[in-house]
Computed example of a mutant assay.
Amino acid sequence: MSFVRDKFSSKFFFFLVFAFLLIHVPIIGNYVKIINTLIHESGHAFFALFGGHVERISLFMNSEGATYSNQSTWIGSFFTSLAGYTFASFMAFLSFLLIGKKQQILLIDILLAFIFLNLIFWVRNPYGIFWLCSFAAAFLFLLIKGGQGFRDHLLLLIASVLLVDSVQSSYEILIISFVQPHAAGDAENLAQLTHIISAPIWGSFFFLQAIWFSYYGLKRGYYKIQN
């Protein structure tokens, strides 16, 4: 039992470290990180649909993204601004949970649903369309040509990228919210909406929820797999 535990512990550690290194490789890293950007911007878009309208989503070569939407209510604006980082962290958690429960096919369906929903309804800028088409094509090719073991490792790598980048991006917004609050994106939007809660507090919230989702995602995935 201890050998099995050590084996899976090593595998999880390897994939997390590899994901961290991969997203910092020039050019390739930005391309890979857009999977987390896609989830982040989709979170904004999903919540913007409640009482509002999504005009478009843009995905950029530097791995950043933007969701352009109109909201008619305060509560709609609040949850739309709140959704990006929290939805990305939740998806990292859900990915490890599904892998732990041997529900890799469901995870594949969810990832492809995000890609095709954005391609059909929201993403209109050239690089965004290129990324969605190229990632979907490569993802499907690798899944079809690779065996079950390869598929499972590919999904574990994607889950690791989602987790690592969700924590890193929330840490970056935490630092920005303290150093340059007015440039803190979603944290500053929420500060303007709530007035009494400052951008650094929202930045801290984004970082803490990312850590919480990461911890429980790894815990659920790790213990499910080894048992």
Rank of each mutant, 00 (worst) to 15 (best):
F47I: 09
F213A: 00
L98D: 03
L82G: 10
K33L: 01
K7C: 11
S204E: 12
Y127V: 00
L16M: 08
F116G: 02
F130C: 12
Y31D: 00
H53E: 10
V17E: 09
F79N: 11
V179S: 10
D109V: 06
F13Q: 14
G128V: 01
F13D: 12
I197S: 03
F50C: 12
F3I: 09
G203E: 03
A191C: 06
Q148E: 15
Y85F: 10
F87K: 00
I99P: 11
G203W: 02
W131V: 03
A137Y: 11
F47V: 00
Y31V: 07
N36Y: 08
Y171V: 07
L193T: 00
M91L: 03
L132H: 01
S166N: 03
I225S: 00
K219Y: 04
F135E: 02
V4S: 14
Q192S: 15
N36I: 00
P181N: 09
F150W: 12
I23H: 09
L174Y: 04
F116I: 05
N189W: 09
R5H: 13
F178C: 08
A187F: 02
I211E: 05
F87L: 12
F135P: 01
F12I: 07
A19E: 12
F114I: 15
I211Q: 06
L112W: 03
S160R: 05
L162Y: 01
I99A: 05
K219M: 02
R220V: 09
L174S: 14
D165K: 13
V179Y: 15
F150L: 07
W131Y: 13
G76D: 11
Y31S: 07
G65Q: 02
Y223P: 02
T37N: 06
F8M: 08
A199I: 01
S214T: 03
L111W: 04
R5N: 13
T73F: 12
L117T: 04
N125Y: 06
K11Q: 11
I175T: 13
Q180W: 10
S95I: 02
H44M: 10
K224C: 09
F78M: 15
D6S: 11
N36V: 04
I34D: 03
F12V: 08
D109T: 09
V167Y: 08
I57Q: 11
S10C: 08
C133H: 11
Y68R: 01
M61K: 07
S160N: 11
G51N: 01
N118D: 12
V4N: 15
P181Y: 02
F205L: 13
I120S: 00
K219F: 03
Q148T: 11
